[in-house]
Design a protein around this nucleic acid. Structure first.
Length: 288
DNA sequence: CACTTGACCTGTCCGC
DNA sequence: TGCGGACAGGTCAAGT
């Protein structure tokens, strides 16, 4: 699923819903989804109070009163869904998304002392949840190499352009997807921002002009901020912490719009493979 | 080092 | 209706 805007949407929901709740039980059916030793879970998760919910790149961190943290990566199909005091009534839009939980994709279930629950669902099992000391989180390999947060106020256009230097020989799309260049960009917002900046995804980084980097910086931030505002993109499986879909796909300009007209010039949008991923462009606006 | 490709999984959709 | 293959919001460990 989830790129920065989707993970941020989940974070905001969890921040509102689970802080202060106390963990009573933790169950998992899949060691790869939750590879923690039982004695650690019993010592540092059971009985712990949720103190904060943070995000770095596409990684979520649920901080606990025990100075341990649940670190979570949703990868392609992960969901974190809170089921509260009352479930939705039959006929409610979220009814079918939440009321059946847990289901066959549930990898981890947390139960709080008030009997509310947090489910980690993940159809493809790529995602994971790990319990570790809070001070150790910055030392995991991913955190050490991940690039800056693109939406931070102090992230400048010149820093953005400079981060690409190391990837001069690859395509701009591959570089955008590289989490060590800039944090949080995935396939949807790579395509959307490259369309905004009128850059063909297969162009080499070394051939991108400073003026084009400036446009890409501006559009990437605009697209991600809009996506957060719309609650993310629900292309297939993504839902937020309350089981709701995001609405950014209603605003998408090229992603998954092959065969439809470019909203800027009317040329038919095409799809092909770039950087190993399905890629969408306007062939008139984005020339190689 | 920098770059590309396959692997990790399950489910769905599309063409025959 | 069945079956094979391609494909799906992401990283990694390998290979060159």
């Amino acid at each position: 699923m989830p790129e920065l805007p989707e993970v941020e949407t989940v974070r905001r929901g969890l921040h509102r819903l689970i802080i202060g709740r106390v963990v009573k039980a933790a169950d998992s059916d899949n060691p790869k989804s939750f590879p923690n030793a039982k004695h650690d879970v019993e010592a540092f998760l059971i009985g712990a109070t949720v103190s904060n919910v943070r995000r770095r790149a596409k990684v979520l961190m649920i901080d606990l009163s025990t100075d341990y943290t649940l670190v979570i990566h949703l990868k392609m199909t992960g969901q974190l869904v809170f089921v509260g005091e009352q479930r939705f009534g039959a006929g409610h839009p979220n009814d079918s998304l939440i009321n059946h939980l847990p289901d066959k994709s549930t990898r981890v279930s947390l139960t709080f002392t008030d009997d509310t629950k947090l489910f980690f669902n993940d159809q493809r099992k790529f995602g994971w949840m790990r319990l570790m000391p809070t001070v150790e989180v910055p030392n995991i390999d991913f955190m050490k190499k991940v690039g800056p947060e693109p939406l931070e106020a102090d992230f400048t256009p010149s820093e953005f352009a400079a981060r690409f230097k190391r990837r001069a020989g690859t395509s701009i799309k591959a570089a955008l997807l590289d989490q060590s260049v800039v944090a949080g960009v995935g396939n949807i917002y790579a395509d959307e921002s490259l369309w905004g900046a009128k850059i063909h995804p297969k162009r080499l980084v070394r051939d991108i002009k400073p003026r084009e980097f400036a446009l890409l910086y501006t559009d990437l931030r605009a697209v991600m901020n809009l996506a957060i505002d719309k609650g993310g993109s629900s292309n297939q499986t993504y839902i937020n912490a309350e089981g709701e879909k995001g609405r950014y796909m209603d605003f998408a300009r090229v992603f998954r719009r092959e065969g439809q007209e470019c909203p800027r010039c009317g040329t038919v949008i095409i799809k092909f493979k770039a950087a190993g991923r399905g890629t969408h462009i306007c062939p008139h606006c984005q020339k190689l």
